[in-house]
Design a protein around this nucleic acid. Structure first.
Length: 500
RNA sequence: GAGGGCGUAGCUCAGCUGGUAGAGCAGCGGCCUUUUAAGCCGUCGGUCGUGGGUUCGAUUCCCGCCGCCCUCACCA
């Protein structure tokens, strides 16, 4: 402890000294509770109603402007900020001496009258000011001014590493960060409201799974001691939710974390939030309409509009979204018709398009690569790409009019996939064959090939009705709706390498 | 995993072609009872990410390592 003290910088030493002084003055610097009557925003938005009234507020001191026997402060609570006027005459000489030990970053309670200064600033004049929590580690000082109605921020706390590692500081000093996360919560509640209103049942399924499935990805592996078995963190909820449809539920959804042991970048975090929905007696066309309607409902609720700007790109969410079969999209953007082509022809086409092909790649994989390279970047306005090759989609039902394709779609916006949906494969014999193909791929070295899940097939044998399924990347939807460039800006604590 | 960039005071940043560091804010001491990026005067604060190398001498040049960011690969 004393050694730790030696490491403290000057400011922190002074803060601790103040802490001792406060305790000597019989003031507890870490209070138990404080009863307040109002939030700062209530007063600011209804000055006429509060003028002259006594209110009590609680929050953090974000700015101090001492002027001798009077100090102006900015108090920040969860709703916003308000100015405080702390005068020696009003709170008393002794209390003012104690108040001089307060710092920016301290959390205080204040009771006093609402008034306006000569400059017209809505202000609370303190009759009492109470320390609730002493700040021992100084906050970065971010100053704001308003010029011509525009907010200007000086010395913003901008170091991304520190912002992500010490989000509690980021949230305190960067109000726009708080806004993004409030919006994130609203997106999720709007989604839940939309799904609940249609009678879908929110459920919970295992995160720890003996066989991982539902997506093509490498899992995190863990171990259960008592059972002495390997368990995997789920990479998707799909197979369990479909078991519930086989069990007689007709509409289920789950909003939860999935885990994929893959790289980290601007659109990928090892743990991320997924919404999966399964609806009995429906197909992927139904699901396309649902996605359009749901995303639009959320956008309206969140931003009051279907128009949005993402990183300078204007996006119009107004339905109907373009619906483009995958091979038509490939034809349109690569100029080559790839439908029905054999692997060697596809490899040749890829070469022609300057896309390197590896020998181990299947025909489906080559198509996927060409798609990513040539088509995806062009899908700026909302677009459903539909009808994928069967070998890319081991859990999707074959297309009713083309057995080489499956009834599947992915919604794209700003060149980015935000979901994945299909008419679910419910034929257990076909499902077993698809799993066998995947097993062969796994044994050939494809680490992301789907695992064979006998119990899931058993459920299909019992019978799963015709079903439409959807997965949506919640983080990416939030990024889109909040104009966030990185997934780390919409996840409170993104995965980072541990310090030291 | 590959390539590129960055890492200087609590925060935001300067520091040209090598001579052991500066500013603003914050802090501390003054003055100040309607300020609001408060102001004025004074002052404290840095093993310049880390470990080597070159050099009489390195924050500055070279190499390794650590961390972050960007691009690519894998993927949602």
């Amino acid at each position: 402890m004393s050694e730790e003290l030696l490491d403290l910088n000057e400011v922190m030493k002074i803060r601790r000294a103040k802490l001792l002084k406060l305790r000597e003055a019989n003031i507890e610097p870490f209070a138990y509770a404080y009863s307040r009557t109002n939030m700062t925003e209530e007063i600011r938005s209804d000055y006429a109603g509060y003028e002259g009234k006594t209110v009590s507020l609680a929050g953090r001191l974000m700015s101090l402007r001492p002027m001798g026997k009077v100090t102006f402060c900015d108090l920040m609570d969860a709703s916003g900020r308000i100015q405080l006027y702390v005068g020696q005459k009003q709170i008393g000489e002794q209390a003012y001496e104690v108040f001089k030990l307060f710092d920016i970053g301290d959390i205080v309670g204040i009771k006093g009258q609402v008034f306006k200064t000569h400059a017209g600033e809505i202000t609370v004049s303190a009759a009492e000011i109470t320390l609730l929590t002493k700040n021992l580690r100084p906050l970065p000082i971010v100053k704001q001014a308003e010029k011509d109605g525009e907010k200007i921020v000086y010395d913003a706390f901008a170091d991304t590493e520190q912002r992500y590692r010490q989000r509690y500081i980021d949230l305190n000093v960067n109000p726009q960060v708080r806004e993004v996360f409030i919006k994130r919560s609203r997106v999720i509640s709007a989604m839940r409201e939309y799904l609940d209103a249609r009678g879908y049942l929110e459920v919970e399924t295992p995160i720890l799974q003996p066989i991982y499935g539902g997506a093509a990805a490498r899992p995190f592996t863990t171990h259960h001691n008592a059972l002495d078995i390997t368990l995997y963190m789920r990479i998707a909820d799909e197979l369990y939710l479909k078991r519930l449809i086989a069990g007689g539920f007709e509409g289920v959804y789950e909003i939860s974390k999935d885990f994929r042991n893959e790289g980290i970048d601007r659109t990928h975090n090892p743990e991320f939030t997924m919404m999966e929905l399964y609806v009995a007696y429906q197909d992927y066309t139904f699901m396309m309409n649902l996605v359009e309607e749901m995303v639009c409902t959320i956008s309206e609720k969140l931003n009051g509009t279907l128009q949005l700007t993402y990183q300078g790109e204007k996006i119009d969410l107004t339905p109907p979204w373009r619906r483009l079969p995958m091979f038509e999209a490939l034809q349109q953007y690569s100029g080559i018709n790839l439908y029905g082509k054999e692997r060697e022809e596809l490899a040749a086409a890829a070469k022609q398009l300057h896309i390197p092909v590896e020998k181990s790649w299947s025909a489906g994989k080559i198509i996927d690569e060409i798609f990513k390279e040539k088509v995806e970047p062009n899908l700026i306005q909302p677009t459903f790409i539909c009808d994928y090759p069967v070998e890319l989609s081991p859990l999707a039902k074959r297309h009713r009019s083309d057995s080489r394709l499956v009834e599947r779609f992915e919604p794209f916006v700003v060149g980015r996939e935000i979901g994945n949906a299909f008419t679910e494969l419910n034929d257990p014999i076909d499902q077993r064959e698809r799993f066998e193909t995947q097993r062969a791929a796994f044994e050939a070295g494809d680490e992301e090939a789907h695992q064979l899940d006998d119990d899931f097939i058993r459920a299909l044998e019992v019978g799963m009705p015709p079903t439409a399924g959807l997965g949506m990347g919640v983080d990416r939807l939030v990024m889109l709706l909040t104009d966030s460039a990185s997934i780390r800006d919409v996840i409170f604590f993104p995965t980072m390498r541990p310090e030291q």
